[in-house]
Amino acid sequence: MAVLQTVLQTGQPVAVLQTGPANRSCKPVLQTGPANRPANLQTLSPANPQKVGKETVEYLEKENLIKVTVPIKIIRRGGKSTIETPDGPVQQHDMSQLQHALIQGHRWIKLLENGRYKSVRLLADKEKVDKARISKCIRLTCLAPDIQEAILCETGEWVLTIEACLKPFPMLWTEQREHFKKLAIKFPENG
Rank of each mutant, 00 (worst) to 15 (best):
T82N: 01
C142M: 14
N40Q: 13
I162K: 10
W108G: 03
D87C: 12
P49F: 02
H100G: 08
K67I: 11
L152I: 15
I72G: 09
K181Y: 01
V3G: 09
K62W: 12
I66S: 02
V70R: 11
V16C: 10
S25M: 07
K136G: 08
V159Y: 00
Q176H: 05
L111T: 01
L44E: 01
V159R: 00
L166Y: 04
Y117T: 04
M95P: 07
V7Y: 02
Q176L: 00
L102G: 00
P49V: 03
D125V: 11
E113H: 09
P145D: 05
N40Y: 14
R133I: 13
P34N: 07
R37F: 12
R177K: 14
L172A: 14
F180L: 02
L183E: 00
D94H: 14
E58F: 02
L111N: 01
R139I: 13
Q91G: 09
Q91D: 10
D87R: 14
G88N: 09
Q12F: 11
H100K: 09
R116S: 14
I138D: 03
H179M: 03
Q99V: 00
E113I: 04
L102E: 03
Q42R: 14
C26I: 07
G78H: 03
V90Q: 14
F187M: 00
F187T: 01
N48K: 13
